[in-house]
Design a protein around this nucleic acid. Structure first.
Length: 272
DNA sequence: TAACAGGGACGTA
DNA sequence: TACGTCCCTGTT
């Protein structure tokens, strides 16, 4: 078990930010996250985080995964103080960090996310993990499922995942899996690309549009300059940034601010 | 009961 | 560029 005081790190906010669909709030101050084939419980209260793992695992896996070495405070400090909307957004969602998640997992997750709500996205992902993911057992004897590899979907018919509630998105996931297994999509190559090139490559995947590509870039490749625009963000931009969001000022970490805005739109005070 | 919207994208025109 | 359609579920 590892105990740490960490600024700008709030698992409740990260849960609600919708970047990770396999993190759950178990009870007050208690969170559980499944990453690939790994599993972690975290207790978090009053700025103190307790990670239920060895110090080794913490430094090798989780510190990286939660992006804990990065000082998000520096981003927040760069916000234009005259921009009260963004200042308030960062005040509310300042505990969000951009997780370093698995590329394949993000491709599938955000293919499923389209025209869908978070509760149902979670269920869809639980379903495909249960059906196609490898079953694991923790040291304490709890069962969980790893996220399915592309190979697990590649042999399916395009509509087979409708049984997991994916609806018309089933064929997107199956086709993407086939393309990965066939080598038409090279995940390792995409991981080495810069943002613009990676996005271009992701857009070739059937079912991936501009918004989903940006989500994959931000959450699966940690390109912090990716700025996904969905309906919520679009509304916020129309309301508060009629002349456009000042991307130049925030060059290189637009995606972090996108998360603050998104979170603020969903959970902030409604000041209509 | 029916209509609608929910972190879009595709195909067609 | 615009618009209908895709599937499912919770909400009104």
């Amino acid at each position: 078990m590892v105990k740490k005081q960490i600024e700008n790190f709030d698992l409740e906010q990260i849960c609600n930010s919708g970047q990770c669909f396999r993190m759950k709030k178990l009870a007050e101050n208690k969170y559980r996250i499944i990453v690939g084939a790994r599993y972690l419980d975290v207790y978090q209260k009053d700025g103190e985080s307790i990670f239920y793992c060895s110090l080794e695992e913490f430094t090798e896996v989780w510190e990286e995964y939660f992006d804990l070495k990065r000082a998000y405070k520096l981003y927040i400090e760069k916000i234009n103080p005259k921009d009260t909307y963004l200042v308030n957004a960062a005040k509310l969602g300042g505990g969000i960090r951009i997780l370093k998640q698995d590329l394949w997992e993000m491709i599938v997750s955000f293919l499923i996310s389209q025209q869908n709500n978070i509760v149902r996205i979670r269920r869809c992902i639980e379903n495909i993990c249960r059906e196609y993911g490898e079953e694991k057992i923790t040291a304490s004897g709890e069962h969980y499922y790893a996220f399915p590899k592309a190979e697990a979907f590649a042999c399916l018919e395009e509509d087979d995942l409708k049984a997991c509630n994916l609806g018309y998105r089933s064929k997107y996931v199956v086709r993407a899996a086939k393309a990965v297994v066939a080598g038409e999509i090279d995940l390792q190559a995409i991981e080495k690309m810069k943002y613009a090139k990676a996005k271009e490559e992701l857009l070739k995947i059937f079912g991936v549009g501009v918004k989903v590509a940006d989500c994959i870039c931000l959450f699966g490749l940690h390109h912090l300059e990716a700025f996904p625009v969905d309906t919520h963000i679009n509304q916020a931009l129309e309301k508060h940034y009629k002349r456009g969001f000042p991307k130049r000022r925030y060059k290189g970490f637009e995606g972090v601010l996108q998360q603050y805005i998104f979170y603020y739109e969903l959970f902030g005070e409604k000041t209509e």
